[in-house]
């Protein structure tokens, strides 16, 4: 509720001043919506089963196979459609996980302060400073292939971002009058945290989300490209790119380039959308 009014105002202002921004945001939204629709409608739209061979191997794109077939004779187009499910599922699940953990830890850390805060901040800062993909690789490789393991390894990378934002918000909210009043009245910590602080820090989540999600798409693709993501034969863009790459030089370009372009498209879509949302929600950032 609190969001709607400023949102409408922001949109009006945008429409006057920044048509370009809006256009870019909309483009992003359309791309993302389209890929979400792809994921949702995959079973309806896909002409073939993405798991089994349906024709000769390595057929070039044709009317029967819009994007050709891969080296097991599977329909690349169908795999792309189903692949969007894998990417979306993994990326959203891992973002939710890091959001949940980051928020919780950030809330505790910011609220209680003191030694707990110091230690937690140090841990989070260490992870934050470390190259994300390398950390994800190390964790993913150690945990072994599998959807849930991939989700965990990606989420570790983004927990610190949520943590930092939430913690910062908590610190500023904590000193506000109504929180101090509640504390003075002897409300238990849990109630204060969940009832008074949490609702006020939640609006910052979409901002962090929008900043992270494109990056998470690339991390997911990177992991599966390196063979550390979801195990075969699940359709997955990063994995299919790698799988197709070994036939690329022999001239079979369709197996790898289509999944590759989809990764870029989705990342661009999320970036455009994220940037737009970011400006809508917190225009003061610019």
């Amino acid at each position: 509720m609190r969001l709607i009014d400023p949102l409408a105002r922001a949109i009006r202002r945008y429409w006057r001043v920044k048509r370009v921004d809006l256009a870019l945001t909309l483009t992003g939204a359309i791309i993302v919506a389209w890929i979400i629709a792809m994921a949702a409608l995959a079973p309806v739209v896909a002409p073939y089963d993405p798991y089994v061979s349906v024709d000769d191997v390595l057929l070039p794109p044709s009317r029967e196979h819009l994007m050709g077939t891969d080296n097991l004779g599977r329909d690349v187009f169908s795999r792309i459609l189903y692949g969007s499910r894998t990417v979306m599922a993994v990326v959203l699940a891992s973002t939710m996980l890091s959001m949940g953990v980051g928020t919780l830890v950030g809330l505790v850390s910011g609220y209680f302060g003191g030694l707990v805060d110091r230690v937690l901040s140090l841990v989070m800062d260490s992870i934050y400073a470390f190259p994300g993909l390398i950390l994800a690789i190390a964790v993913a490789a150690m945990l072994g292939p599998g959807v849930s393991n991939t989700v965990v390894s990606i989420s570790i990378v983004y927990i610190p971002t949520y943590f930092r934002m939430i913690r910062g918000q908590v610190l500023s909210v904590k000193s506000q009058l109504y929180v101090e009043a509640a504390t003075a009245l002897g409300a238990p910590h849990k109630v204060i945290m969940l009832k008074y602080i949490l609702p006020n820090v939640i609006p910052v989540l979409p901002v962090v989300f929008s900043m992270n999600v494109a990056d998470a798409v690339l991390t997911e693709a990177g992991l599966s490209f390196l063979g550390l993501g979801v195990p075969a034969p699940t359709p997955d863009w990063g994995f299919d790119l790698r799988n197709g790459q070994r036939n690329l030089l022999a001239g079979y370009w369709w197996g790898s380039t289509f999944p590759g372009f989809m990764i870029v498209l989705l990342a661009v879509g999320f970036s455009l959308l994220g940037e737009g949302l970011n400006e809508l929600i917190s225009p003061e950032r610019r």
């Binding site: 870019l24 990177g222 790698r242 590759g260 990764i263 870029v264 661009v268 455009l272």
Partner: peptide
Amino acid sequence: LFSIVAYSLFIPLLGM
């Protein structure tokens, strides 16, 4: 637009 797309370019794809 370039700056957004550039960052989203998947390195293995661009490299390939």
